[in-house]
């Protein structure tokens, strides 16, 4: 299986050529292979070189050393048109295209297939329509792109990239400006698109928690120039995830798959209660700087008495017992007790 990688990085070194003998190396000796049918998220802290890697993979920037292989062939040996038939791109920035309808925008993706006149054949037309349908924009096909919402617009750009019928689709922070539901929807769409047509879809993203949940694989690029590749859960369990994003004041909690700020502890409390109420109260307590002891036996014991969807009732047992409603009151009480 290893030999049949669709995308392969071989001893790749990326960065900028500043002068004849002065290179600014961002990351070096990257060796990776990716198989068809996977949705991969590229994550890394700001400045680690995600953009440089993306630019190198898409051929916008030559590698300093090594090569990128596409289906076993070095990428540099493809003509622009041949490369465009294998790889397509979605970028972050909004493109001002005025009153161009979605259909025409998606049809631009057929550019590497059409002749001099740009005329679409029946095959091109069905590729365009299939792309529009697969991102779910058929109802908006004739709407001008400038009238779409940001989410719809990005879907149209994805449809355009799909119309290129690529084996590899690369998205550079393509979900950056969308709200959470839109991002979840888009990630789900991308994963399905990768599976259905046996494509590789590579998304560079800042959205760690969502990527952990949605991606088939993660590429973690650390500031030291190391690129880790693996299934998200493996990377969490072996500590790679925490190490990549290690920085002062922030630590990764493998229990919940999220980051939290390190604060000085204001004392231990124990929490008793179930379900959602427990989860959100826990958050509030942690934010206020309390450590939650899992074993119990802390100086303060908080018991949650609540039914789903009816707000929170709580009582504190211990040296000073009291009770009340709502998280805000709980926090205020704890504050007072702590004084």
């Amino acid at each position: 299986m290893k030999s049949s990688a669709l995308l392969e990085l071989r001893k790749l070194s990326i960065g900028y050529r500043m002068g004849a003998h002065r290179d600014r190396v961002v990351a070096s000796d990257l060796n990776l292979g990716l198989h068809a049918g996977s949705f991969v998220c590229l994550l890394g802290p700001n400045g680690a070189g995600k953009s440089t890697l993306i630019r190198t993979l898409t051929g916008l920037q030559p590698p300093l050393e090594g090569e990128v292989l596409l289906d076993g062939t070095p990428m540099a040996s493809f003509k622009p048109r041949d490369l465009a038939q294998r790889m397509s791109l979605v970028l972050t920035q909004r493109v001002p295209v005025g009153n161009m309808p979605v259909w025409s925008m998606v049809a631009m993706g057929r550019h590497p297939y059409t002749g001099w006149s740009g005329r679409l054949g029946t095959e091109d037309v069905s590729a365009v329509e299939e792309s529009i349908v697969s991102v779910g924009l058929e109802a908006l096909a004739f709407r001008p792109v400038c009238e779409l919402s940001d989410g719809e617009r990005q879907k149209a750009m994805i449809a355009r990239a799909l119309a290129q019928d690529p084996k590899i689709m690369i998205l550079d922070e393509a979900t950056a400006f969308l709200d959470l539901p839109r991002r979840v929807e888009l990630m789900d769409l991308l994963r399905n698109l990768a599976r259905q047509k046996q494509r590789i879809i590579l998304l560079s993203s800042h959205d760690l928690e969502l990527s952990l949940r949605s991606a088939d694989r993660l590429w973690l690029l650390s500031p030291s120039g190391q690129l880790r590749d693996g299934v998200p859960e493996d990377l969490v369990l072996d500590g790679g995830f925490a190490e990549t994003f290690q920085s002062c004041g922030l630590s990764f909690d493998p229990q919940r798959g999220a980051f939290h700020l390190d604060r000085p502890s204001r004392g231990q409390v124990s929490l008793e209660g179930e379900g959602v109420a427990n989860q959100w109260t826990r958050r509030a307590l942690e934010r206020a700087g309390f450590e939650i002891s899992e074993q119990g036996g802390a100086a303060l014991h908080i018991r949650l008495l609540t039914a789903e969807g009816e707000g929170l009732n709580w009582e504190i047992a211990g040296s000073r017992s009291c009770s009340g409603d709502g998280v805000e009151e709980l926090l205020n009480t704890l504050e007072a007790v702590h004084e």
Partner: peptide
Amino acid sequence: NALLLGEGYARSMGL
């Protein structure tokens, strides 16, 4: 037509 989308996209479409 390809340049309408900007140089990055135009290049990615084989121009």
